[in-house]
Amino acid sequence: MAGPATQLSGDASVLRTLNLRSVLRVLYGGGKSHTITEIAAAASVSRPTANQAISDLLAAGWIRHSPQTAGAKDGPGRPAQRFEFRPGAGHVLGVDIGGHKVLALVSDLSGEIVAERRATLRPSSPRSRRLAIMNQAIAEALDAAGLPAADISCAAIATPGVVGPDGKVAHAPAIPDWVGVDLGEHVRSRFGVPTQVFNDMRMAALAEHWKGVARDASDVVYVHVGRRMGTGLLVSGRPHAGRHGAAAEIGLWRGLPWAHAYERLLELAPGRAPAPEAPDERGDAIQAVFEAARAGDAAAQSGIEAFADLLVKGLAPVMVTIDPELVIIGGGISAAGEAIREPVRIRVERETDFPPKVVCSVLGDHSAAIGAVRSALDVAEERLFSGLKPP
Rank of each mutant, 00 (worst) to 15 (best):
230 G>E: 15
223 V>S: 01
226 G>R: 01
250 I>W: 08
265 L>Y: 03
256 L>R: 04
254 R>I: 13
255 G>T: 08
264 R>S: 14
258 W>T: 13
238 R>W: 06
236 S>I: 03
211 K>R: 12
227 R>H: 14
244 H>G: 03
240 H>E: 09
261 A>V: 06
246 A>P: 00
223 V>W: 09
225 V>P: 03
247 A>K: 05
250 I>T: 14
230 G>F: 15
222 Y>N: 04
227 R>G: 15
236 S>L: 10
243 R>W: 13
216 D>G: 00
236 S>C: 02
244 H>L: 12
242 G>F: 12
262 Y>S: 02
243 R>F: 11
229 M>S: 11
248 A>V: 06
212 G>W: 01
254 R>A: 11
262 Y>L: 06
248 A>Q: 04
239 P>F: 07
234 L>E: 03
258 W>I: 14
247 A>G: 01
262 Y>Q: 00
260 H>M: 12
255 G>H: 10
213 V>F: 04
238 R>Q: 15
252 L>Q: 13
248 A>S: 06
225 V>Q: 09
229 M>K: 01
248 A>P: 00
248 A>R: 05
222 Y>T: 00
251 G>W: 10
212 G>F: 04
212 G>A: 12
255 G>A: 06
240 H>W: 10
211 K>C: 15
245 G>Q: 09
252 L>W: 08
227 R>D: 09
211 K>W: 08
218 S>W: 05
225 V>F: 03
223 V>G: 00
253 W>D: 14
250 I>N: 05
220 V>M: 06
228 R>V: 07
230 G>D: 14
265 L>V: 06
248 A>Y: 02
244 H>W: 07
222 Y>E: 01
222 Y>L: 06
246 A>E: 15
252 L>A: 13
251 G>H: 07
217 A>W: 01
226 G>M: 11
249 E>S: 01
248 A>N: 04
257 P>I: 03
219 D>R: 14
217 A>I: 01
252 L>D: 13
240 H>V: 15
215 R>I: 14
